[in-house]
Design a protein around this nucleic acid. Structure first.
Lengths: 200, 200
DNA sequence: GGGAAAATTGAGTGATCACTCAAATGTGAC
DNA sequence: GTCACATTTGAGTGATCACTCAATTTTCCC
């Protein structure tokens, strides 16, 4: 009776991503995964090596999406600083039931990781560092375009920007209204825009 | 052979607090708890009703400590705004191996809670709301003392302050140096102080 | 000191955990 | 058409999960 239809790896990973994002690594059981991917244990272990490997793949997937999203927002903006501000404002426009409102998966993973099973936490940390590096590159570019003063510390600004983003994501995960979230996002966005050197 | 010595409830709860704070609810097993509290399962269930109840008690304990800490910092300060700024700066002075550096337990619990087992998340959320209410009271007091302009929105300022604190705690949980953390804390503290209305 | 109450003990409960593998079946080369 | 291979299947693995309880020992009142 076996061999129903070959699984769709992309769809499976998307389903696993949604599941892990919602429930986290530890609270997600193989039963949950079987149901979400519509796969039996054997298939799951043939396709991915273990629960941990599968989680790692979904984490990478999540990172790629976030990263691509950030990069494209920056590219679409008139300037680096404008792009950084726009990216913050986008948060406020997310619908209340959007999965993004359940806080950044990287942050959840980092905070949820224990020291004896440190691999996942370290992985999440590395991805966050890559995001920070991308943000630092944007601030650096702003410097070279004369948007920021030459003495600005791009690395520090990037760390603070990422921290603000984390805090905003945390606010979003609470039960606050869209208006309140929009106000917070607007404040942070204006803080970024206020860094701009008045030119001529 | 039973009846070694009666357990010390305060010491047991402190040990449980440290354990749950580090590992989180799901990743902590009863075996871990038995070892940390030096109690056998029967005693644990006689003293506390369940793992969940025990976690609830430790969460309350954590909240009480944080709350008392916040209130005493405010009382020791020359003014409400000064106290709020001081509380932020204290973060930077924490040693690298302090348990406080492993991020706020309330935040970790809230982010780690799943929707089907929502009780713990809601509890953490309520405690966070109480902290925010305490912060709002401080901003309100600052208004009435003329430290803040009359049109200031204490509730909003409190939410933003709490978000900043969360972001700072997240930065602290990463591998950043004490100096970097101090710079971030100083920035946030000065942001609070900058709200002060210049009087005469 | 004697006896009832209180409290700890730790082996053991069924359930669930992540995971395995022999069997069954679809797939593609020839 | 046939056969070798790749892949799915799902019952079943031992381990560990949160939790229970009869037995045992200490405490404390008299």
């Amino acid at each position: 009776m076996p061999r129903a239809q070959p699984y769709d790896r992309d769809a499976a990973l998307d389903a696993a991503l949604t599941l892990f994002w919602r429930k986290g690594y530890y609270a997600t059981s193989l039963k949950d995964i079987e149901a979400a991917l519509n796969m039996k244990p054997g298939s799951i272990y043939a396709a991915f090596n273990s629960k941990e490997t599968l989680f790692g793949l979904t984490l990478e997937r999540y990172f790629r999406k976030q990263h691509a999203d950030f990069v494209s927002t920056l590219k679409a903006a008139a300037s680096p600083l404008q792009g950084l501000a726009d990216y913050l404002r986008r948060f406020a426009r997310l619908p209340l039931d959007d999965p993004q409102r359940s806080s950044c998966m990287l942050v959840k993973t980092l905070l949820g990781a224990t020291e004896q099973d440190a691999k996942l936490g370290e992985l999440a940390g590395q991805y966050i560092d890559q995001m920070i590096a991308e943000m630092a590159a944007a601030f650096e570019q702003a410097k070279q375009l004369g948007e920021l003063p030459g003495e600005a510390d791009a690395a520090h600004l990037a760390r603070r920007y990422q921290a603000d983003l984390t805090a905003l994501g945390f606010e979003a995960s609470r039960r606050i209204s869209r208006e309140e979230l929009a106000v917070s996002a607007e404040e942070l966005a204006q803080k970024v825009e206020a860094m701009r050197v008045r030119q001529t």
